[in-house]
Simulated scan of single mutants.
Amino acid sequence: MRTAAPLLPVLALALALAGCGQRPGPPASHASPTSSNDPRFQPLAAYDMPDDDGRTVGRARWTLAKECMVRLGFQDLKNLDIDPLPAWPRRPAGTGVVQLSLYASDDLRYGIQDPEQAARHGYQAARADYERRYRGKNWTLSEYLALTGQFVGEDPTSVHGHRIPKRGCLGEADRAIYGTHPQDRKDPVLDLETKSIQQGRLAPAWQQADKQWSACMRKAGYHYASPRDAELGEDRRHQELEARLNGASRDPDEPSDLEKRTATADARCKQQTGYVRTVHAIDVRIQNQLIARHRAKLEAQRRWNDDAARKADEILEDRS
């Protein structure tokens, strides 16, 4: 089951998209739902990498990446602590590039649901969860490039006289574990999870749930047609931009008070209207239908994940 993870680290230079990053791989441990009535229960998760295997792959990835970094001349990283696992590297500030990351979590598949969580984190609970599970570290530009191979503009492609491998040391590690790079291979679990949501939103019962939620939000003073609209919050972003232009200042990594209030109302309306119960039932039904139609490629994905976990075990065993 996927817990919070950055889906798409994006590098943007000026107004142009410079490149897309790599997913950080399997998440940290998370309690698995035991009932199909639990909104975290997802039939497709049975074909995803289990949490224990995800931790093993993560340790193997960073173990190999450390060895690669030392080989490239970063001797001080020989003793890099990888317990807990480091967060996916971020390009250092002040290098002329803006890096944005989108975060997602299975726990938030239907949006924010807990008013207390919403009051603390607004719509950024997935990011907060990820930062709690993975240890942040500030990397130099040379370290970042060597780890990720995400070059922009005139970035050097060599360090200490050594050429940086394709997709950096983390990419090299993934190729050793998976046999190829995961980003080069379509993940049928993620693909079908996306299709299930897309199809579900077209169902009359889902659209009726949106309408009931929207009516509840109107009573609270918010005008959104669906929880997706509230989370995107184009009107809210406009108000926040105006506030900044008028001299208001706040930490850009922290949700605004307006975002927190909106998210709290959102979560309360989901509870009051039974929104999550309704859409989850639709989602589960569609996922089961998709599984029946795509079982062969899902089984192939499960075998691919199993092979990667066994390889990761062997890598760690060789170094124990």
Rank of each mutant, 00 (worst) to 15 (best):
R23P: 08
P24C: 02
W62T: 05
A104N: 03
P115Q: 01
G58Y: 13
P86K: 04
P89H: 02
G122C: 09
R109L: 10
G94Y: 03
G25N: 15
C68P: 00
L102C: 06
P92N: 08
G73Q: 02
K137Q: 05
Y123T: 05
R71W: 12
L145G: 01
G94I: 09
E131W: 06
C68I: 07
V57Y: 07
R109M: 13
Q99T: 11
G21R: 09
A60L: 10
S142Q: 08
M69Q: 04
S36Q: 10
V70E: 08
L100A: 08
A146E: 04
G111W: 06
W88P: 00
A118L: 11
G73S: 02
V98L: 07
H121N: 13
P24N: 02
A104K: 07
V98N: 08
L100M: 12
F74M: 02
P50Y: 14
A104Q: 07
R91L: 04
S142D: 12
P27T: 09
R71C: 02
Q124S: 12
Q113M: 13
P39N: 01
G111S: 03
A146W: 05
A119D: 03
D48Q: 14
L108R: 12
R120F: 09
T63H: 11
S29A: 11
R40V: 11
V98P: 07
P39F: 06
G58N: 08
D52I: 14
P84F: 00
D48F: 14
L145D: 00
L72E: 05
R55G: 07
A118V: 13
P84E: 01
D106T: 09
G25K: 07
G136Q: 05
R91I: 10
Y103S: 01
I112P: 00
I82F: 05
L85Y: 08
L102T: 13
E67Q: 07
K66W: 12
N37L: 14
M49N: 15
P84W: 03
F74N: 00
K78R: 09
P89M: 02
S142T: 10
P24T: 01
H121Y: 13
Y123D: 06
L85Q: 06
Q75V: 12
G21V: 14
A60T: 10
A45H: 15
P33I: 08
C68S: 04
G25F: 12
S32M: 14
T140Q: 02
M69I: 13
R40C: 07
R91K: 06
V98E: 06
M69H: 10
E67L: 13
A93W: 06
G94Q: 02
V57W: 07
W88D: 01
Y130L: 04
E67F: 08
G111E: 03
S142L: 11
E116L: 15
A46S: 14
A125W: 15
L102F: 15
D129I: 11
A45G: 09
A65M: 14
R91H: 02
V57I: 11
P89R: 04
L100T: 13
E131P: 00
T56R: 06
P26C: 04
R23A: 02
Y130C: 00
I82E: 01
P115G: 02
V97I: 15
V70S: 01
E143N: 03
N138Q: 14
E116V: 15
A126M: 04
C20A: 13
R61S: 06
L85D: 02
N138C: 01
A45W: 15
D83Y: 11
A126L: 07
